[in-house]
Structure formats: C-alpha cells, structure tokens
Design a protein around this nucleic acid. Structure first.
Lengths: 97, 97
DNA sequence: TAAATTTGGTTTATAAAATAAACTTGTTTA
DNA sequence: TAAACAAGTTTATTTTATAAACCAAATTTA
C-alpha cells in the first residue's frame, strides 16, 4: 500500500524551501525567494506553515537597518523531510512491488 | 532553480494511480481502489482528471453482468510520469548541486 | 418473489490549499 | 522631501482534494 504523504511537505513551494534549507546552515527570506522563484507573499505564508509545524526555525532580526528573516531547518524538519522522501519513493518506483 | 511540478501528477491519489498503472498492462476501478485505499468518489474524480489530461485511457465495459471501468496508462502518461519523477528528484537531493 | 444488500460507480458539497494582489513599514536615493 | 525601493505580511480569490450522498443494476436472503 502507498504510504501517506505528509501534506505539509507535499507542496511545491514548501518542498523547495525545505530542500534549500536541508543543504545550508541557514538562509534568509530574500535568499529563499531567489532560490525558489516564489512571490514574497506565497513564501511568507509557506514559511509560517513550516515554522508552525516545527520543521523550521525562524529568527527575525536586522541586517544593517533592514529587517531580515533567517530560517533554518530543525531536527524534526530533517526527520520529516527524510520520511517524506522515503514515502515518496514508494510512489515513484512503479510496479517494482 | 527548481523545475515546475506537473500539478496533475503532484497529487497523492493521482500519483498513486499512475504509479500502479505504470506497472501493469491495465487495471480496473476496483483494483485501483484496493491498491490505493481511496474512496470510490475520490478515485472517480481523479481518474477523470487523468483521463482528461490524456495521461490514461479509460474504457467502460462489463465483466460478466457487472460494469467494469478499465484504465491503462497512455504513452503521454508515461512521459509525463517520467518527467515528473525527474523534476521531483531535483527537490529531493538537497543541497547536492 | 419481494425486500434487503452489495457492487460499481457518479455527482455534489465542503473544507482546505495554493497563490497572487494589495498593503504596510521603514529605508534609500534623486 | 518626494519618489522609489526593500522586506515582508495580510487578505482575497481561485483551485484542489476529499468524503458524503446518491444512483442503477445485480445479487443475495427471507
């Protein structure tokens, strides 16, 4: 049977964000926006959801005088991402049983 | 940059259906329902969408006296599935580039 | 054989998601 | 100092996903 896919991660933008964050120590909002090509509004919403789920930690500070939102993946986020990838693989390897 | 994920395939149930169909010659409604664990209503809707996209071919007939809806993946469906898998891999291999 | 149940679905209603547009707050530049 | 820009947030709208309700035919049971 197909495993359930974590709906929080089964979203194009949230998955992209997690993918970026899985590869770096931390990333700020602007960087994530550039990497994902998302609109600011969409990104803001999806970051909120990931943060509420505990998959990422968000820190609001300033870089110079400009506001700067920094995100990093949490251990729970790493685990969730890994599980999602494993689950997904069951869907992709068609008919191998 | 992250490639766009085909929204028709980036859906848990539709992906499961395609995954099953990619591995068999054909499958009827009941089989797909059992394999995916979906409700009949949901399955019916998603099959329609895949058929409208040309990703699967649906044939309505009878097995004995009972109605029987048979599905099979089309060449376009195979191609779309392959592309989706490739695209998705870019999201899963975090920070490897 | 008539009623109840099951099979194989479809249609419809609803709740949740994704997304962009509009807005806010503050900063820099002309 | 007015206009433009930066970094986000909030809100509104359009899609989706999903299950519940429904339907017709076949089968089983009493």
């Amino acid at each position: 049977m197909f495993p359930k896919l974590d709906p929080l991660l089964h979203s194009e933008l949230r998955l992209a964000v997690m993918s970026v964050l899985a590869g770096v120590e931390s990333a700020d909002f602007t960087f994530l926006k550039a990497q994902t090509g998302a609109t600011a509004g969409n990104l803001s919403v999806q970051i909120d959801k990931l943060a509420n789920a505990g998959y990422i930690a968000v820190e609001k500070g300033f870089k110079g005088k400009m506001p700067c939102t920094t995100c990093r993946i949490t251990p729970e986020g790493v685990e969730a991402f890994d599980s999602y990838v494993s689950a997904l693989k069951e869907y992709l390897s068609a008919g191998q049983s």
